[in-house]
Write a protein that binds this DNA or RNA. Structure first.
Lengths: 211, 211
DNA sequence: TAATGCCAACGTTAGCGAATCGTTAAGGGA
DNA sequence: TCCCTTAACGATTCGCTAACGTTGGCATTA
């Protein structure tokens, strides 16, 4: 399940887009202004940014600029009125991966996004393990490994926030019946299956160490 | 909670900025002239400097110069009138991390600061020890050391207020069951683990000495 | 002013107790 | 059967208290 960060202040358009993208199997997070988009991007790893340009507080171009400065290489699409296109392409060759003209064909949008994400397919390599963030598939020595729903969610959380300390609450959010005991068991099992270096910060949470 | 040192002599602007930055979750210390900024910077470790250039006694550029000479690598932003920009950028490539044009968009300022602090990860070096202020992680000779919650909080308090005398009450604020005895024990342990020079001021509190 | 004695504050060590953690084994629902 | 959860238990951690020796400021005294 790919995660898309949509930056769009037009209510009607954003609702349509969200519905459409969710239907197409994406997980959509919605920001209504540039600042919100920026802070959301710090919280979660997205697979694609879909930014309108003319939004409050901080326009889409500047948001992407700040993200790229911050060494964020997530694919980004701009949504834009036709007249702005020239400005965009000139200013952001390389930084922006594609742009969508307004008004646009929804189906075309979805196709483009899928094509792009598939092409890009962000993957984390961890030792002899490989994790496909897009399809949430785990490979150990090129052999696929399967996990249960909760365990996979915890694994995903750790991978997406490598070397960051995660509060227990963040794990609880992805568990059916959140409890301290259950979490500990899940982590033990993950550590046993894969050679994960998971550090406990007593009273706070856990952190997946690099390599 | 990130600490910002604001150097600004214009009363109205400084009050506005302070209010805004506090609202955005920063801890702001205000200096009205260059010398005050300098002495404040010796007392506390800040996560970011926000300096106006044209201020009394010692201008912002010279303040930063002195700080950099003193091996201070804290990120610094300049606030400046548009006409000064060229001078700044030429004179301070590398030393100054960003500049904000006057008049400026407050929201943009906050976003930039946040982005920068995220990217930079301010670190204090103390002997063979390194302390990551943002993630609150301690390294001795590049090996990470772990501390308990309370001990870490006390450590953090000392580091962030190096060579400043801290009232006992300030330590009590971060302890589960505040007591004189407990505090003394914590400090002893910290002194033993790391080679900290902690001075006691009888009846008042403690101070972490530099180097 | 210098010496003396007092006492509260301080530094350090040892150890208790509660809370948390890691792991194995067992329960239970879909 | 699979897999998430719970139970149980030993191990560990961590913050606090107790105890005791040490220090330093201050008043008293000569």
């Amino acid at each position: 399940m790919s995660k898309i960060l949509l930056l769009e202040d037009d209510y009607l358009l954003s609702q349509t887009l969200i519905g459409l993208l969710r239907e197409a199997g994406f997980e959509v997070t919605h920001a209504q202004d540039g600042e919100e988009a920026l802070s959301l991007s710090y919280e979660t790893v997205f697979d694609l940014y879909l930014f309108d340009i003319n939004v409050p507080l901080l326009n889409g171009i500047d948001v992407l600029k700040l993200l790229r400065d911050n060494n964020d290489k997530t694919p980004a699409f701009f949504i834009s009125a036709y007249k702005d296109i020239q400005t965009i392409t000139k200013a952001f060759e390389g930084a922006c991966d594609d742009y969508i003209k307004k008004p646009f064909d929804f189906d075309e949008l979805v196709v483009r996004i899928k094509a792009h994400i598939h092409k890009h397919n962000p993957t984390i390599v961890y030792g002899s393990m490989r994790y496909d963030l897009f399809n949430k598939r785990i490979f150990v020595d090129d052999k696929e490994v399967d996990l249960g729903i909760v365990e996979k969610a915890i694994f995903d959380l750790l991978m997406r926030n490598m070397s960051q300390t995660l509060d227990k609450e963040m794990f609880f959010d992805v568990m059916e019946k959140p409890s301290d005991i259950a979490l500990r068991v899940h982590l033990t099992k993950l550590k046993q299956r894969f050679a994960l270096t998971i550090t406990n910060i007593k009273g706070i949470g856990y952190r997946l160490e690099k390599v």
